[in-house]
Design a protein around this nucleic acid. Structure first.
Lengths: 212, 212
DNA sequence: GCAAAATTAGAGTTCTGACTCTAAAACAAT
DNA sequence: ATTGTTTTAGAGTCAGAACTCTAATTTTGC
């Protein structure tokens, strides 16, 4: 497809710059209201240049989504590996950082999905994958003694989905387009989730987490 | 400002039709991707007509928001009145119906707020009002014996905000632009919230609610 | 150094959507 | 009816955004 240099260089290409600048602008200005022209202007490159690297705006968004997924999967892998194992709250905090870094997605996902079926499919797959991972992680945490076994499947689903919904929708409540973003919502979300999950932690772990 | 007939007629004006049709289209198609032309076409009226009734698209959205607020405040009032008092879950179910009826707002609020400072202000006021109401309602429910006193203020805030975030962000997870919307997400959200709140209900009320 | 390939600039095209303007139609009050 | 007011139609304007095309420039492999 794209004639990408295979190994030879790790110098920063315009393609990379477009992606990382886009994430920044999307977070600040909203993906929906950012035009490709804005991106070009911010990088002082020409539209021709941008469209050489990406077929269209959707392709940029999809590429960013993939990038986010890969970071996420990397975190998952290390969280469940023995040497780099993460207990629940540590894991949540690390996940939240990713959510925060790509927060425009969570704010605008519905809108983006609506106008790009490809992204919509990617999103659904990722959601499925997330649910499967959560199941695995919970089992691990139970075995490690951080979490008490959750009785019924419905409660588990509830916990699962509420954590997910909260993590991804929380920021838009506490972020205002009017003023520049701070990481305060990030911390608040972590604290909320800790308090929310407390009843499901083992007494030992609960003590450890809530002492702060 | 607008030369609105004062009392004389309750016949359905185009203004009303525009509002109610817009809610429908916005829910189905997304407010962001619905143009005023779409609305005109759906009602088979001319753009001139639409712009006679509303200065611009934002004014339509703001009018709908006001309408939603009024319905909400009506519900609040009746929920706390002695004769029409509603216990927590009944109240949540009724609230959820309103959320559902205006779900496009909750899906796209961030985006809409971004491009309309007036709406943004309305939204913040409404959020504040909601928090104040929730506080009052909790106290009432404690007095009525549905809810055990929530110890610390932080837990209360957590419950409050998680209910709010869940209620308003839940649907976008379970709705796909690809297929027509069903009310299943609505029921699921209610069940989740019931399960989530269970630990804070009095044993009596909890039994009553979870029997289903 | 040179040819081929990759990258870039930037003007230009096309399209869509918000909104305007004018004239006509419908309606109301006298 | 007639005069004034409200409502409507619909063609038309304008701006912005996505995207194209061609010609230059840079980079790469040899």
């Amino acid at each position: 497809m794209r004639a990408q240099p295979l190994i030879r260089s790790k110098r920063i290409t315009n393609r990379d710059k477009i992606l990382s600048e886009s994430v920044g602008i999307f977070n600040r200005m909203g993906a929906g209201s950012t035009s490709t022209n804005h991106i070009c202007a911010a990088l002082a490159i020409s539209p021709g240049n941008l469209y050489f690297h990406f077929k269209n705006k959707e392709e940029i968004v999809a590429a960013i989504f993939q990038q986010m997924c890969e970071e996420t999967y990397g975190l998952w892998k290390s969280a469940l590996a023995e040497e780099t194992f993460l207990p629940p709250m540590a894991f949540i905090e690390r996940s939240m950082e990713i959510f925060w870094r790509y927060r425009f997605f969570h704010r605008e996902m519905y809108h983006l999905r609506r106008q790009d079926p490809v992204l919509s499919k990617l999103w659904h797959k990722h959601l499925e994958k997330t649910r499967r991972f959560m199941r695995a992680a919970f089992h691990k945490w139970v075995r490690k003694g951080h979490v008490t076994t959750v009785g019924d499947a419905f409660t588990f689903r509830m916990i699962n989905d509420i954590v997910l919904v909260t993590a991804s929708s929380f920021f838009q409540f506490y972020e205002s387009p009017e003023r520049p973003a701070t990481t305060k919502p990030l911390q608040l979300a972590n604290q909320y989730l800790a308090r929310f999950l407390e009843p499901y932690f083992t007494p030992d772990y609960a003590r450890q987490v809530t002492i702060q």
